[in-house]
């Protein structure tokens, strides 16, 4: 059976990817952030999963406003890197894990989640930047296959935080029931506090972010109880992306340990956070 080995929460700000693509990670502006990533990256490099389920949102690239799904899963065997309007990121295309996708779609639909399937999907910075945070130098290919799981965070009403945590729990069950003996990592991406438009543009709420970084480990139910209006008020209109961390957290077992975390302001207009959790739930001898 498949097992979940770790969960990574990380911001997916495009400029983090651009800093890597343009060799600027040692600049004064970027160095603190990338130094903060270092211990997590070292640990992850020693714990390569077979598949990463990456929970993210598209930003007006593959998904237009004609159709806006609440939750969607990619079912392709390959995902091209999106051209978001200024050329594709110079990173490898993403290899799918279609059998796992198929299994997840069926299990989640049978578990009363109304999943949209994407047979064709160009993945934008929401997915590729987290892959770069995980693996800065992939060479010709990313170290693992990927199942994209998309959440609508752009169009209001977004799914509730509670629904996202519930989806994560169902996702965890679905992954663990996959009959192949593979290891899986789950990425929750987006956030932390930021707002791009309106009079509150530039909003950063460090107090909220610190609370969130702690509670995502110890009290996700508290985060799930916040309304979308709470998220928008506290974390900004784009900070509501944090609900995607709850999908990741829900997929992990109750027995997790924090490998590393980092928090830095600013990355472009955003507070960038990272939290890495090892999932001990499936380890021999670990509590169930």
């Amino acid at each position: 059976m498949a097992r979940i080995i770790w969960g990574l929460a990380t911001s997916h700000v495009p400029s983090i990817g651009a800093a890597m693509d343009n060799g600027k990670t040692a600049d004064d502006y970027w160095k603190p952030l990338f130094d903060g990533y270092e211990p997590a990256r070292r640990w992850m490099a020693e714990h390569t999963p077979d598949v990463a389920v990456v929970v993210y949102n598209d930003h007006a690239n593959a998904v237009d406003l004609d159709q806006v799904p609440a939750f969607a899963i990619g079912t392709a065997d390959r995902y091209p890197v999106a051209d978001e309007g200024w050329g594709r990121r110079p990173v490898p295309p993403v290899t799918g894990a279609p059998e796992l996708s198929e299994h997840l779609v069926r299990e989640l639909i049978d578990d009363s989640f109304d999943i949209t399937t994407y047979h064709r999907l160009d993945v934008d910075h929401g997915l590729t930047v987290p892959l770069s945070v995980y693996c800065p130098e992939p060479g010709q290919a990313w170290p693992c296959a990927v199942v994209p799981l998309l959440v609508n965070v752009i169009q209001y009403p977004q799914p509730t935080a509670a629904r996202c945590l519930a989806l994560g729990k169902a996702l965890g069950r679905a992954i663990r029931s996959f009959p192949q003996d593979i290891s899986v990592a789950v990425f929750g991406t987006g956030g932390m506090s930021h707002q791009l438009a309106g009079a509150r543009a530039g909003l950063i709420n460090t107090g909220f972010d610190r609370m969130f970084l702690d509670a995502i480990e110890h009290d996700p139910e508290k985060l799930a109880a916040l309304t979308r209006e709470d998220y928008i008020r506290e974390a900004g209109t784009e900070g509501i992306e944090l609900i995607m961390w709850l999908v990741m957290r829900g997929a992990l077992s109750d027995t997790i340990t924090r490998v590393h975390e980092t928090y830095h302001v600013p990355a472009s207009n955003t507070a960038a956070g990272l939290a890495l959790f090892e999932d001990l739930g499936d380890r021999e001898g670990a509590p169930a």
Binding site: V68, Q155, Y156, A197, G198, A199
Partner: peptide
């Protein structure tokens, strides 16, 4: 002049299509 927030709700999506 900007308001605090701009939510792209379903009505705005229609208006701004």
């Amino acid at each position: 002049e900007a308001r605090d927030n701009y939510l792209l709700d379903v009505a705005a999506s229609r208006r701004g299509y």
